[in-house]
């Protein structure tokens, strides 16, 4: 069974969001990293980029597959996990902690409430 964190929100495209005040940290779920397999390359946006929900904010690649990353919420990118570049295995090993990807300053702090809660995400992935 996949690790699904309580208190986080999720998307159908397998990103997670952790909201703290007016910022949100974003990554991909344990289920997503498992499906992708060994991750060997990531492209992330620059700090300062303004994202709307559902925008492509980056790309993650395993040995065999390319997968786009979709912004779960709208806001300005205020931090990017630069440590992932060259150490992408961290996304496989720790998708919710050292594998985080970006932090955004939320345009609308209520927006994340519309995303999937842990139970809804678990049924989404058929577990």
């Amino acid at each position: 069974m996949s690790d699904i964190r309580p208190g986080f929100r999720y998307t159908k495209s397998h990103e997670w969001v952790k909201v703290e005040g007016d910022t949100a940290t974003i990554g991909i779920t344990d289920h997503a990293q498992e499906e992708l397999g060994d991750i060997v390359y990531i492209e992330l946006p620059e700090v300062g980029r303004v994202l709307s929900a559902d925008d492509v904010f980056g790309t993650v690649e395993s040995v065999k597959a390319v997968s786009e990353l979709y912004a779960p919420v709208s806001g300005e990118v205020v931090a990017v996990n630069e440590a992932l570049s060259g150490s992408e295995a961290a996304i496989n090993e720790s998708p919710y902690e050292t594998g985080w990807m970006i932090t955004v300053k939320l345009k609308d702090p209520a927006e994340a409430g519309k995303l999937l809660d842990p139970d809804a995400y678990r049924s989404q992935i058929g577990e």
């Binding site: 397999g37 060994d38 395993s62 040995v63 065999k64």
Partner: peptide, 9 residues
Amino acid sequence: PVQYRGVLD
């Protein structure tokens, strides 16, 4: 089978 433990392994 596309993979068992993982492609890199």
